[in-house]
């Protein structure tokens, strides 16, 4: 493997968990729900994914368990924030704290056990091509799922009637309600989808990225995913760019250090955040486009006046 190939592969791996979690949150926010519990849902997904994979020996079971766990956690948020109309910000932060604590409790028995390796895709001839072989045809299966998910989310939001309803609920819940759409149902389903994606992103961490479980292994990736959604101005395409950019700068700063460029490492560690924010702000500077894409009812509770 050449160095360039190694770098590109590592960047894709670094971007994938962020992409999963951010895509889910994007759909939830498009429906008007701000769920700050991404980090907690990822943690729960990571531990349940690891546990299921460890007990069955099958990474697929791990992925499914991660999705299910994320959805359960999101369901809890949905009941509290949507059904009982509690403050979304507070409920989301509580979900993060709860998820981190719960995952530590569940994971107690799984600390210090190496995970099952997830095999990479291997297509004869194609995966052996120079440079692009491993990169395009030899990733782990999750990467292809993440790309398909990004395309699927874009298609759903902008090319289907259901997506249009979802966006209308996020833009003006009163009008959507008046037109006879169920705001609660749409939002609850969007939140569940967000949980499923965050759970899968978490499972990716404990199954593929670093096949192990350790408490707090999500290490703030849920918060990065949340920020990516905003800076990508709620557009799936930009989200992919943002996640890859963040992954690229995080990996390249490590390479810069290893080469010994002499720039303080503390500054290099900040770079992924700075570069991603600056880049996404620049591509989002079209104000008209930004206001069109920002869900106007984001974070606002909806109580139908019967």
């Amino acid at each position: 493997m050449t160095m360039l190939e190694g770098i590109l592969l590592t960047i894709v791996t670094a971007a994938t968990p962020l992409l999963f979690a951010a895509l889910g949150e994007l759909v939830a926010e498009r429906a008007g729900v701000l769920n700050l519990g991404v980090e907690g849902m990822m943690a729960v997904g990571a531990v349940c994914g690891f546990a299921a994979c460890n007990m069955t020996g099958m990474p697929l079971m791990g992925a499914l368990a991660g999705i299910a766990a994320g959805m359960l956690a999101a369901g809890l948020f949905g009941v509290v924030a949507l059904f009982f109309v509690a403050n979304q910000n507070a409920t989301g932060v509580a979900l993060t704290l709860f998820g981190l604590g719960l995952s530590a409790l569940i994971g107690d028995a799984f600390v210090g056990i190496p995970g099952v390796a997830v095999p990479r895709v291997n297509i004869p001839y194609l995966s052996d091509l120079p440079v692009v072989g491993r990169l395009v045809f030899g990733e782990d299966p999750f990467v292809y799922v993440a790309i398909a998910l990004a395309i699927g989310v874009w298609w759903f939001l902008f090319k289907t009637r259901a997506g249009l309803i979802l966006r209308s609920v996020g833009d003006n819940h009163n009008s959507a309600h008046a037109l006879g759409f169920s705001v609660f149902r749409t939002r609850f389903l969007a939140v569940l989808f967000g949980g499923a994606c965050a759970g899968l992103g978490g499972a990716y961490l404990s199954l593929v990225y670093t096949p192990q479980w350790t408490q707090a292994m999500t290490a703030g990736r849920g918060w990065i995913a949340l920020a990516l959604v905003v800076f990508a101005s709620w557009l799936p395409g930009r989200l992919v760019i943002g996640a890859l950019l963040f992954g690229a700068v995080s990996i390249l700063q490590l390479h810069a250090q290893a080469i010994g460029v002499g720039i303080p490492s503390q500054f290099l560690s900040m770079l992924p955040y700075i570069v991603t924010i600056v880049a996404l702000v620049l591509i989002s500077r079209n104000r008209a486009l930004l206001s069109v894409n920002t869900p106007a009812c984001l974070g606002r509770p909806f109580v139908p006046d019967v």
């Binding site: 493997m1 190694g6 350790t214 290490a219 990996i251 290893a258 490492s265």
Partner: peptide, 26 residues
């Protein structure tokens, strides 16, 4: 070759650092 992770504990970042160092010949 030295990489400062600026953290005591972040499995993902530690793995990335190891990959970067290996890709550079360590």
């Amino acid at each position: 070759k030295i990489v400062w992770a600026n953290t005591w504990f972040d499995p993902g970042k530690e793995a990335d650092a190891a990959k970067a160092l290996i890709d550079q010949g360590a």
